[in-house]
């Protein structure tokens, strides 16, 4: 499983060529049913704390990965 580490605080416009390449390669890995879910690590708010969450830490469990447009919107 490939790992990508996402740091907060980087703006969308400030991607380096390497970063763009990284994203492109990750997309090439193609997200589709039957394929491995691309791993990621990112900051999260969980149980009152700020902590890093890594998708692959949940191997062995079912995971519902839920994207939504933004906080303070209905989901």
């Amino acid at each position: 499983m490939e790992e990508m580490v996402f740091e907060c605080g980087k703006s969308a416009g400030a991607k380096t060529i390497e970063e763009k390449q990284e994203i492109k390669e990750a997309i090439m890995a193609t997200v589709k049913v039957g394929a491995k879910a691309p791993d990621f690590q990112a900051p999260a708010f969980y149980k009152g704390n700020f902590q890093q969450v890594k998708l692959s830490d949940f191997l062995g469990k079912w995971v519902v990965l839920c994207f939504y447009p933004g906080d303070f919107t209905f989901v």
Binding site: M4, F6, E7, C8, G9, K10, S11, A12, K15, I23, A26, I27, A29, V31, A37, P38, F40, A42, P43, A44, F45, Y46, V53, L55, F58, W62, V63, V64, L65, C66, F67, Y68, P69, G70, V75
Partner: peptide, 30 residues
């Protein structure tokens, strides 16, 4: 509640709307 700064995770999962700068409602069962 994961923070996807700049929509990088969303881009990989194909749910990031670059024009709006947000992730659309994508749900994946893994």
């Amino acid at each position: 509640m994961v923070s996807d700064g700049a929509g990088k995770i969303g881009s990989v999962y194909g749910v990031y709307d670059e024009a709006a700068g947000v992730n659309v409602r994508g749900r994946f069962i893994i």
